[in-house]
Structure formats: C-alpha cells, structure tokens
Amino acid sequence: MSRAFRSLLSLGFLAVTNFVMAEANLGSAAPTWKDLPGTDGKKHSSTELKDKKAVVVAFTCNHCPVAVAYEDRFIAFAKEYAPKGVEFVAINVSNIDDDKLPKMTERAKEKGFNFPYLYDASQKVGKDFGAEKTPHLFVLDGEGKVVFVGAFDDKMDAKKVSKHYVKDAVDAVLSGKEPEVNKTPAHGCGIQYED
C-alpha cells in the first residue's frame, strides 16, 4: 500500500468533505487549468475556452471500463456540438501507468479522439473540480460557471440510454436557460488521489 494512501487514511476526517466536493462547484465559476499537456503534443489552458458558448469537461482515463464505454459517445458529442460553439475537453488525473500520457496518446490515436485529452499529473484540476469518478462530467456555461455535474447519461450500456444529461444541459445553456437537471450521481471508477 502506498505511503500516500496511508496519509489519506490518517487524514480520514478531512476526506469527509471529498464526497460532496463536486457539489461545491455547482453554480460557481469553474476551476481553471494552465499548460496541461495534451495527447496532441501541445499544452492547453482553460483560457483557450473563453469564447465558447459552453464547455464540457470530462474527467476520464484509459483503464476504466466505464470510461471506455463512454468514449464513442464523447466522440459523437464532440462532433455534433463543435459546430455549435461547444468545446469538449477530456482530462485525466490518474497516475497509474496505463493512464499516463504515452498511453493516453496511444488511446487517443487508436480511437480517433476529436477533442483535447489532457493530463494533469499533479491531479490538482481533478481536486479543484471535485471529480471523483471516471467519467465525471461538468458542464460550464458561456461565463465559465458550472451548471451541471454528474453522469453523461443514464446508462453505461449505450443501447439503453434514455436520458442524455450532458446534452440536455448543454442544449439548455445554448438556448439561454438553466439546465432542468443540474446534478446527477456520477458512476465509474473512483479516481485515486495520491494525497
């Protein structure tokens, strides 16, 4: 067991806030990030997104079967919504070997990701957002305010989806409304924070 995890246990009382951390961001200005390396070989910052009508930030990773189950849906979403001025950004904060940048780059190429896939080895951006799961979705409005937190949709099995939470939230933003559903539980693999 890692030393980091021991520290986490010994600071167990602090962890109490973690489970509801995601809610803290709802309605507030989204956390920012700076110079995160992407699978495109470039560095990306949240300032690049200032002119977008809406932004979807997806915390995801390579190794998690739930995250993998959503990859095609993310690609389809990015394709459909890019022309509408919506940016989809995937961020990985997992530091296990299968999730690090070289593997991310492989995966992005293999799947043909049509969106930035960024890596934050410091895990800071994940903590700032309160991301707990992969995938864990955050929808930001044109002002950069978090208007939705949760799951991409209501089924891991793509064939059975009936509620498109993220699409609905983005559609609401695009039509100048508040999303009807602004929070759902996320589901997927737990993000392992190292301290």
């Binding site: 739930v66 707990e132 209501d154 759902t184 539980p185 996320a186 589901h187 997927g188």
Partner: peptide, 16 residues
C-alpha cells in the same frame, strides 16, 4: 443493474 442505475437508485457516485 446498469452502473448508472445503481448510482441513481442509491444516489451515490457509483461504487465503492
């Protein structure tokens, strides 16, 4: 049950 339904049903962020 689908993991998304699990999360909804118990109103938790999935497993664990």
């Amino acid at each position: 049950e689908d993991p998304a339904d699990f999360a909804q049903h118990f109103q938790v962020n999935g497993v664990p």
